[in-house]
């Protein structure tokens, strides 16, 4: 069976006029359905870059990326956008909520280009906010929410289209320990339902719930090991 995401000899070069820097150099790995991968590494190791490629935000300079067996290079920009909308959810360190929208409106943003009754959209957003413990705060603006609450709104937004993969870049980086724990609880809960989580983190403690640890160094995989076994099958390749 095809892995969920497959990278082969992926390299990423930034800058095109002479001063090009390699952010990734020859990464080969597979992500299986249901994994919870913690990605660590020093600053500048290429973690965020790897995440953008795994999430179909950009296509690597060389090497191949396959989503469910489909080569990313064969997809148009619009098809990549559709893939992100339907299969991938993003959570960012800086929440990236739209400050002029309420919590519920932020959750509805990914549904904006979709034809659907506004009542239906609102119900869906309310249910998602309830699932991250934010019932009653649907009409608050991000500025009226705590950092942890903002991040939970962002998670609700990422889950709108019921993606199969959740990508998170330092989701707890701006949060205190307690709020960070709540976020990690949500990830675990979601992973327990058989969904895939890929999380970049600086904090080794955050790896406690992951099934697999991936450590990068200078754009290469320094270490890739299973932390615990998935109920369904082997974690590491």
């Amino acid at each position: 069976m095809e892995p969920l995401i497959r990278l082969e000899s992926v390299a990423m070069l930034y800058g095109d006029n002479g001063t090009s820097a390699a952010a990734l150099r020859g990464i080969t790995l597979s992500i299986e359905k249901g994994e919870y991968v913690g990605i660590t590494g020093e600053s500048g190791a290429g973690k965020s870059t790897l995440l953008t490629i795994l999430g179909g935000l950009q296509v690597p300079t060389s090497g191949s990326v396959r989503f469910d067996g489909v080569d990313a290079r064969s997809l148009t920009q619009d098809q990549l956008a559709d893939l992100r909308r339907e299969s991938i959810g993003f959570v960012f360190q800086a929440y990236n909520l739209l400050p002029y929208l309420t919590a519920r409106e932020n959750v509805m943003v990914p549904m904006s280009p979709v034809r659907m009754g506004s009542g239906e959209k609102e119900e869906k957003a309310n249910a998602l906010l309830a699932s991250v413990g934010l019932s009653g705060k649907e009409h608050r603006l991000p500025s009226e929410l705590s950092g942890g609450e903002c991040q939970r709104v962002a998670i609700a937004r990422a889950l709108v289209h019921d993606p199969s993969v959740l990508l998170a870049d330092e989701p707890t980086g701006n949060l205190d320990t307690a709020s960070g724990e709540q976020i990690l609880d949500l990830f675990s809960e979601w992973n327990a339902r058989g969904k895939t989580v890929l999380m970049v983190t600086h904090n080794p403690a955050n790896l406690a719930r992951a099934t697999r640890s991936l450590r990068l160094r200078d754009g290469q995989v320094e270490e890739d090991r299973a932390l615990r076994f998935l109920p369904a099958g082997p974690a590491a390749v």
Partner: peptide, 16 residues
């Protein structure tokens, strides 16, 4: 740019 990037990330096509 960031806000637009977020919209693109959550699946807005360029046309959107």
């Amino acid at each position: 740019t960031r806000e637009i990037g977020v919209l693109r990330a959550v699946g807005f096509r360029r046309k959107a």
